[in-house]
């Protein structure tokens, strides 16, 4: 276990290092001048030169990179080029929004997928199975962007049940939850459809095994067999997918936050890339990378919990 943790931590650090190099290089290779983006078409040459100097864009690339890494290691992610305030603060004020959305998306995905997947497996080769597989096929096929617009048109414009966008903030939990419903559904429907299919096939495979037959022969109820015996044994592939899906949900917020005008990290990264705001993009990509790596790490730990046989191997 100690060796496992050490290997994992090393992987984590190396991944982040690689990501930082790639982001830094890509943002610098990408054509675009932050000073010109800020000052616009009427800017004079000397104003542009002054701003470039102010932003430290005239230093050599390597110096800037080393500087950035050194400061980041000390917890200082620099000042945003375009906002002119510390990047850490910018991210801090947006993080609750994106976390709220990603977590509610994850909960929705898992609940819907398990219910649909197990339900379909239990009704294998019956109309319930076909119906659920059809719905999940639809869920996979519909682009999140388009689904968002349909949901808004129906529930916000036509029925007026829910707000069309914006986030009310957690000061008012009811309003906050209301404003999260549509974005959550739009964000998570694709993921839950994928997961439902994985759950179904994984459950079907387990159901064919001897111990399930034994359980059935013992006279346990169908429900008990499904949720107590089939599901736990079908979890390994499900958890693997969930780990990958959490990363997809976090990055999926970029589109969803734009459509529902939510003040989260997705909109911030979008805006920062357009503005060539290197310090902000750099910090955000690192954060997203860290979230993905952490999610995978947690999945690895969960394997051991789910399948005790792995403990010996780890």
């Amino acid at each position: 276990m100690g060796y496992f943790l050490f290997r994992r931590t090393l992987g984590f650090v190396l991944t982040l290092f690689a990501v930082s190099v790639v982001v830094f290089a890509v943002m610098n290779v990408l054509p675009g001048d932050p000073a010109l983006t800020i000052l616009g078409l009427d800017a004079t040459e000397d104003a542009l030169a002054a701003l470039r100097e102010q932003l430290g864009l005239n230093d050599p690339l390597l110096t800037r990179y080393v500087h950035w890494v050194w400061n980041a290691l000390h917890g200082d992610f620099g000042i945003s080029h375009s906002f002119g305030i510390p990047v850490a603060g910018l991210i801090g004020e947006r993080l609750p929004m994106t976390i709220s959305l990603a977590v509610s998306g994850m909960i929705f995905t898992v609940i819907l997928a398990l219910v649909m997947g197990i339900g379909a497996a239990a009704n294998h080769r019956k109309p319930g199975d076909w119906g659920m597989m059809f719905i999940s096929q639809l869920g996979i096929a519909i682009p999140a962007f388009w689904l968002s617009m349909l949901l808004v048109l129906l529930f916000a414009v036509k029925l007026r049940w829910l707000p069309p966008g914006g986030f009310a903030g957690w000061d008012d939990p009811v309003a906050a939850m209301r404003s999260l419903i549509l974005p959550t559904v739009a964000l998570a429907l694709v993921q839950s459809s994928v997961l439902a299919r994985v759950t179904r096939s994984s459950a079907l495979e387990v159901m064919r095994q001897d111990f399930v037959r034994t359980a059935r022969a013992t006279g346990f109820s169908r429900r008990r067999i499904l949720w107590r015996h089939v599901l736990p044994n079908a979890l390994v592939p499900i958890v693997t997918i969930v780990g990958m899906q959490f990363a997809a949900l976090v990055t999926g917020t970029i589109v969803i936050e734009n459509v529902f005008y939510l003040p989260g990290l997705g909109r911030l990264i979008f805006q920062s890339i357009s503005n060539r705001d290197l310090p902000t993009v750099q910090a955000l990509v690192m954060l997203f990378a860290a979230i993905v790596v952490t999610a995978n790490f947690i999945v690895d730990l969960l394997y051991v919990v789910i399948d005790p046989r792995l403990k010996a191997r780890a």
Binding site: M149, V152, A156, V157, R160, P163, P164, G166, N258, Y261
Partner: peptide
């Protein structure tokens, strides 16, 4: 002032009188 970058979202926000 509410910032709504997406044109379709802008239209929906107007329609819903937000």
């Amino acid at each position: 002032f509410r910032f709504i970058a997406d044109a379709a979202a802008a239209s929906a926000a107007m329609m819903a009188e937000e």
